[in-house]
Design a protein around this nucleic acid. Sequence first.
RNA 1: GCGGAUUUAGCUCAGUUGGUUAGAGCGCUGGUUUGUGGUACCAGAUGUCGUGAGUUCGAGUCUCAUAAUCCGCCCCA
Length: 434
Amino acid sequence: MTARTLQGFMELLPQEQIVFNHMKDVIAHTYELFGFAPLDTPVLELAEVLLSKSGGETEKQIYAFKKGDTDLAMRFDLTVPLAKYIALYNNELTFPFKRYQIGKVYRGERPQKGRFREFYQCDIDIIDRDELNIVYDAEVLAVIYTVFSKLELPAFKIYINNRKLLSGFLEYLGIADKTVDVLRLVDKIKKIPEEAFLAELADLGLADKARDGLLEFIKINGTNEQIIAKLEDFNIGDGLFAEGLEELKTVVAQAQNLGLPAANIQIDLSITRGLDYYTGTVYETFFDEYPQFGSVCSGGRYDNLSSVFTDKKFPGVGISIGLTRLFDQLRANNLLPIKTLTPNKALIITQDAAFTEAAVALASKLRAQNIAVDVMYRQCKFKKKMEYANKIGVPYLVIIGEEEAKTKLYSLKDMASGEQKSLDAAALADVLLG
RNA sequence: GCGGAUUUAGCUCAGUUGGUUAGAGCGCUGGUUUGUGGUACCAGAUGUCGUGAGUUCGAGUCUCAUAAUCCGCCCCA
């Protein structure tokens, strides 16, 4: 029997897991800072619930199985479970409802770089009844900006767009019926050459004029202000396009109002997002220097979250950090925000077994003051104990031997500097707390 | 689902036109007189060469099959 782990499932060594958890904690704390309440839903749901809104792709990727006569499936995102949750409990919830959820989701796809079969999504969503204020679309930007800043990651940009712009533009061109196919193609514009793009548009049956217009539209670039000015120049009139432009202007203005640097928010008219439930603002996040990581945080606004479960209308806006991908890519490029390698602040070692009692007593005293400490009971050469301390990366070492046990003055060694002091329990705690 | 590549020590890899006992670096274990680590030096262990078959006097090396892994496409965090 060979021990192995399924492909597409991430398993970490302790020192990596500590960094991963640190990132997860920063994300959760930041979400709460913005008033989002925690939510946890089951990993398993009835297959019919998860597949209720799916297109062909999710059905292909979802893990589904039968237990007895019941068709079950593992959640492939956190949005569909949220839609179910809202439909179930909306009478007991207070709106606008802000929740965050951090959990594993499952997709049975071909794992490749940055793609996993089991991965963490860190979601926030704001849901309201009937109408959801557009300022929330900007607040979502502020949350993501704050998370990435706190994680001390490389320079990043959140790219935003509004689906109504492109849909309205297609409406104007008289090709609204092709919207879904065109959106899919627009999403690929950065990956394929311009000629291929135009050729595929032609395959969709678009006239030359429409194709040129579309290309010109997508290629609009510049600062956010410049892009907005150019969009206004289109002068398409009322309708979806005007609505989208108005929303986009508000989001940009409010983002500025929330104090987000212009360098981190960029309008990009080619961002469309594949999922077809988005109806307004859409987001994708890339690192400036590492575009190959892919989007590490994406989302958008949807008009009617729970439409398959209820007739009530619940518009929402949300975004999700793909923590597993983010971590994996950062690790591969030596960019992990490493704070500490062990949960312990100090390791207590003894000269020999005779001092175990003293070590345990000291450990208890320190733990009572909320200081994480570990005691090494294994007896071996002193040098080995040092090596152990060194390898686990503990910042301080406490040494208890004959002298220390007698005087109650413990030797505290700073592992980084090598400096060593004799301190009583109280003074030692002060150093470890500081 | 379609296409391409890879597979040799725990990890990253080298291994000539097929030749006898399969290598390096890192890591690991031990040591350099046992209460002081990270550096250095010394010593050591570890492989069914992915698996199965074939060609050959002889296969890590050539052929075929199979599996696993990786990379594109599709889709997506």
